[in-house]
Write a protein that binds this DNA or RNA. Structure first.
Lengths: 113, 113
DNA sequence: TGCCATAGTATCCAAAAAGATACCATAAGG
DNA sequence: CCTTATGGTATCTTTTTGGATACTATGGCA
């Protein structure tokens, strides 16, 4: 049965409109503060950033390090386990790129998506 | 910038809550009629099934073959291009399976998800 | 004394996605 | 005639997501 299909489990971790971008930035820089993420992703609200980070944290993809300072400082970085997700993200990225080309071949450049 | 990130392009094709299951069944049987899909996925409504199939068709993942009969007969199957998505789906499935185990190790069996 | 910065919450609201339900055309079979 | 089967559409409502805005605590600095 379809209950065996765990594609959605992987999907859950990536779905949320901001998670890929967040991971992209954390991956690129290694470690990022909350405010740095906000600056890198200007259109995201604090609420969204917080909720997406918390979900990724729950799934052990990123970890959250709080410095007991004022003003507060919180750093986010990939966990060791989270790094294991990267090959999958890359595969998805590559497939996505190729797919955009494919759509252009079918429908022509004018109607991307 | 994050505009280079095409993970979401891949995601778009799988997101929709029913698409993975639909692909799973089409992949398993090769070819399926609309009504067969309905029976295999009892909780889906016709509206959802139709819209998901149309999106997959737009992306050239499945094709739709209409038989000029009454009552109507329409068959869905993977396109050659669509078969190229399968390795990615399998990677996601495997990662998803492993991730469920991982969550169990972290949080214990009692709180799956 | 007042203002700034950080990393959030809390509330409320709008938009998007999904679900429920009803309807349609047509031919075969009884 | 009436019913059944198929592969949908059309409409309306509910649920889920996401966005806007305001607010908070605290220490440093002028």
């Amino acid at each position: 049965m379809a209950g065996d299909c765990k594609v959605e489990t992987a999907l859950d971790i990536l779905v949320g409109k901001w998670k890929p971008v967040i991971l992209y930035h954390i991956l690129g820089k290694g470690t990022l503060r909350f405010s740095e993420l906000q600056r890198l992703i200007p259109d995201i609200t604090k609420k969204m950033l917080t909720s997406q980070l918390r979900e990724l944290e729950y799934h052990d993809i990123i970890n959250r390090k709080i410095y007991a300072q004022i003003p507060p400082k919180v750093e986010y970085s990939l966990t060791e386990y989270g790094k294991g997700l990267m090959p999958l993200l890359e595969s998805m990225h590559h497939w996505g790129l190729a797919h955009i080309k494919h759509l252009n071949e079918i429908y022509g450049e004018e109607r991307a998506k």
